[in-house]
Write a protein that binds this DNA or RNA. Sequence first.
DNA 1: ATGAAAGCGCTAACAT
DNA 2: ATGTTAGCGCTTTCAT
Lengths: 345, 345
Amino acid sequence: MADSDTQPSVDKPNRVRTITDLAKIAGVSPGTVSRALSGNSLVNTKTREKIEAIAREHGFRPNQMASKLRRQKTGVIGVAIPLGHDVRQQISDTFFMTLLGHLADELTERGFDIMLRRVIPAQDEDWLDRFIGSGMIDGVIVVGQSDQFDRIEDVADGYLPMVVWGNHQEGQRHCVVGTNNRLGGKLAAEKLIAAGARRLAFLGDTQPIEFAARFAGAKEVAEKMGVSIRALPTHLSRDQTSEEIAEHLSNIEGEIDGIFAATDTIAVTCLKELRDRNINVPAQLKIVGFDDLPISSQTVPPLTTVRQDIAAGAKGLADLLLRRLAGEDTESLVLPPHLIVRDSA
Amino acid sequence: MADSDTQPSVDKPNRVRTITDLAKIAGVSPGTVSRALSGNSLVNTKTREKIEAIAREHGFRPNQMASKLRRQKTGVIGVAIPLGHDVRQQISDTFFMTLLGHLADELTERGFDIMLRRVIPAQDEDWLDRFIGSGMIDGVIVVGQSDQFDRIEDVADGYLPMVVWGNHQEGQRHCVVGTNNRLGGKLAAEKLIAAGARRLAFLGDTQPIEFAARFAGAKEVAEKMGVSIRALPTHLSRDQTSEEIAEHLSNIEGEIDGIFAATDTIAVTCLKELRDRNINVPAQLKIVGFDDLPISSQTVPPLTTVRQDIAAGAKGLADLLLRRLAGEDTESLVLPPHLIVRDSA
DNA sequence: ATGAAAGCGCTAACAT
DNA sequence: ATGTTAGCGCTTTCAT
């Protein structure tokens, strides 16, 4: 008798999938539903409440894909982690993971979602263009320059909403957030020397520019102070590191009295190897790390290290990206490192 | 004279943004371009090459939003990390971050992107429905049940493509991947007892069901062997943990000779505190951890612990989710824990 | 305050 | 092998 479409409470209400379905039930137009649900414009309070009630009842959510397509905004920030040198390393590296965690906090707080993409540049030439051009993200944060400095530079000219975690080079074009690695390296070397070391070594890969800068800073101080310093290269995947460090230690037995480790992870492994050889830290050998990871205060002896403020870094990345999203061309942000003195030097 | 739209090589080629722009230039229809670019159907090789060339020349990428809207698939897996108990903890917790890293590897390899969402259930009642209903993801992996067991159960009935990392309960409805925590707890207690401990303590929060299960397993063994065991609760954020552990240690001085720590992170902190009090491990006090994080082999003494196979867990999560995406209703996957004997017990 | 209508850019029948 | 057409579900002028 009555119209069969307008019954509000059938046992199995036909699923409300679209804003149009809902509009039909509410007896209004799709436009009104859209407005009501986005809370945006001036919809009659009664109408809005009615629409909201129906939406709740049916568990309806507007399709984001359609919305984003129409509005040409995604509300998603891409986070790319390029694994340049060593495929196995960075994604499970504590430092990057911690940074990512903080980044997730910051961006979530600002209402953005995160699209995580692990990239292996060697296997995928134009990972960055593809990510940016995918139409799925409003902006991108690149975590770690790896060996992709040039590629990032290329993109930076034509694409504003990108911020990179990494090292700052004089005159670079992309916006970067990172610790002053060179200064950090200086701090480390100064501390080692002040503690009495005279024959230094830098333990770690010197290829990545962050690490290169740390080494350069240490070297500058060492040379100024008339102290020797050499590089003892390691790779980054954990399994190898132990052996490599062991080998280095055998080779330099007695020739070295101070080690500046490129990262705390390396320092911790080194500490373990030294212990196994009964070399006393800091009496026989002093050691300074970099990062100040949570473990570093728990080692034996507790590690003297150069602290990177990861939380501040994440906040900086998020802040700058949002400003760039708004059209501003921001400067890079270089954070000061802090020497944390514990017992290893 | 000639049509002014068809010039192939003007100096500043008007930006090719859509498949239709490209079609116009190539002198074909949008449909053909779509087919050519998706490499899918049988397009004339010449035509395809021409289209690909133009696309490359103009740096054109099809808009993903539009494509996904049309195809009703996103190629994105949502990864939700509920922070139930302690807002500051889990996202920077090494264990979860490592799992996330492996998950990123697995899903990327299978051609999916990851949408990361950090959720604080206390502040957002229906986080899970919202995530699923957002239309932005094809399926969801929930990393950690936290205190959201019931909410997850509710959703599981109506939503197939969901897999959860966590503990398996008899008769639960959602598909879970995780370590057999109870068995892990047994292993730990057995080891402590075999090493000579007779007065045990479980160090850690017993609220989260994973931890509760570990404790229950240990308790079962202890009772069977006529050995005492008590719980020493801690919270999860790192700053507090140290103090809490210190307090516990003061209180139980001499009353305890074996500690089963809920996680390696707790165990490492405990080891440090014990060292500060000159309590010898394992002579005076034995300790067993849980997880087998990378640090655990580097502590002094190296930590005896119950290993969770994180990589296998990540693979399991990805595998099961893909099968569910294909419509299959999969069983849960319970992974066996492994006792790793080092020097702390 | 609401409705009508025109797309956002792409894909997949259905034709040819 | 390619063109034509009709949407995917939403938002936003432009009317009223």
